[in-house]
Design a protein around this nucleic acid. Structure first.
Lengths: 247, 247
DNA sequence: CGAGGGTTTGAAGTGCATCAAATAGTGTGG
DNA sequence: CCACACTATTTGATGCACTTCAAACCCTCG
């Protein structure tokens, strides 16, 4: 859920952008064009709320650039962050299966470019274009897989280990030895994303720093040894590193 | 994820059983027959392991009766229970999207009747029978929805509240006032299912008992006031009761 | 009746949250 | 370019929730 978009993503045409996403891959060009015609591009600033839980759902969203927080709130004001999505990722599409209501809220957390497409069009093409149903099915199944890993993490890992896992997903796969990474968004938001409080995040990151030899400078972190981080983190997870390869 | 099968489920013919599941509903009869022909019925005793994580996946499973635990294990032996499934529920089908390997282990926790069907047949019909793809898509999307609620619970609810939610799902929807319910499986397993230790479960249930006036007799529990339980539990959740209506 | 697993209870420790306050960092208007 | 205002982050002190380890209890089944 943390993969970053290729640099060229935003620069290319809308149709070509769509074709490079999991949902529109290998679709008849006419279908992709149909979506591109009905699409609306929207530019949103930090803090803007795109929709809230239980809203009637009309659109689903593709992120071109930036970051969007997907979350739920309880009556008491506690917030559960479901996901934080970036370029090439979709959200809101699942409202098709929840009586056309969004089941979470979405808020922009950084300057963001979005593509809005009608859910009705998606529904139409799910029926009409079998490849689209297969694409969405594959996509949804993979999301479910990722989610169930996160459930496992919440249930059996410590805060420090969850942070380690988060950092590992930010390391380029090709890297051996060490890596220099950059936190993609607010530490406060990362904390919420990992199911902990900001104070806990701060302390747990400090612990990780001393335990596996990190250098931390604001939101830039250099990992001396990825192997050490893997050992620290992944031994307490059911999957072995790298665990995010959806082949 | 806790819905129980109608009593008549096991008694009916295999084809009719299939047709009453979300995956086979509204399918051409020829397709359902095709699955029924290739299906194997299997009877498994408590403790039997059906497959383990990373096994090559050949079958997906429908539960006719009994209970099956789906879980993952870490190197250290910690166990995360993904789900505990009963009659009319499927599992193993998602291996289609994870390179034909199961991504969790499955163990029978009570005398269980299963129907095994080849994943290859499912793959074939997903391509050939659009309604089947739509059915699986709807099913997967709903599972994802349920999962994300559980993630929320793990992140922001206390052990006691999670137990309250679990009990509420066992109450017949139609009930007003009070209800008498029966825990469907081991308390130890329920604890694991809810992401806590058996000791914690025991103590948290005792707390719930005194806080919302339960009567507990072994695995039989009577709830004096469902409303009280709802207030205790659902105010700390983003969805309002009843939250499991997938319309 | 006895063995073994499930369940409860107790005592002590750990991890995370909470509340409060200090510090660092960022963007703004002057 | 600087000072201020505001937010993000860190740090400290304390409390609660959950776990751990250990032992007792209970229940079922051979």
């Amino acid at each position: 859920m943390l993969a970053l978009a290729p640099r060229s993503f935003v620069a290319s045409s809308l149709v070509s952008q769509l074709q490079r996403t999991s949902l529109f891959a290998n679709l008849p060009e006419s279908a992709v064009n149909h979506f591109a015609e009905k699409a609306q591009v929207k530019h949103a600033a930090k803090g803007q709320v795109l929709f809230i839980q239980d809203d009637e759902a009309e659109w689903f969203y593709l992120v071109q650039s930036g970051w969007v927080k997907l979350f739920r709130e309880t009556l008491e004001g506690a917030e559960a962050v479901i996901d934080v999505v970036s370029a090439t990722h979709f959200f809101g599409e699942h409202a098709l299966f929840t009586a056309d209501r969004y089941s979470y809220s979405a808020q922009v957390v950084d300057k963001t470019h979005l593509v809005l497409m009608p859910l009705s069009l998606l529904r139409y093409h799910l029926e009409k274009t079998p490849q689209m149903a297969m694409n969405l099915l594959r996509h949804t199944a993979q999301q479910r897989e990722l989610q169930s890993r996160e459930m496992e993490h919440l249930a059996i890992q410590t805060a420090t280990q969850r942070i380690g896992c988060f950092l590992l997903k930010l390391c380029p796969d090709t890297t051996h030895g060490g890596a220099q990474i950059h936190l993609p968004y607010d530490k406060t938001l990362i904390a919420a994303r990992l199911g902990m409080k900001p104070e806990t995040f701060s302390r747990a990151l400090a612990k990780l720093k001393s335990d596996v030899n990190l250098k931390i400078n604001g939101s830039t972190i250099s990992v001396a040894s990825i192997a050490a981080l893997v050992e620290y983190t992944c031994n307490h997870c059911s999957s072995s590193f790298p665990c995010d390869d959806n082949s």
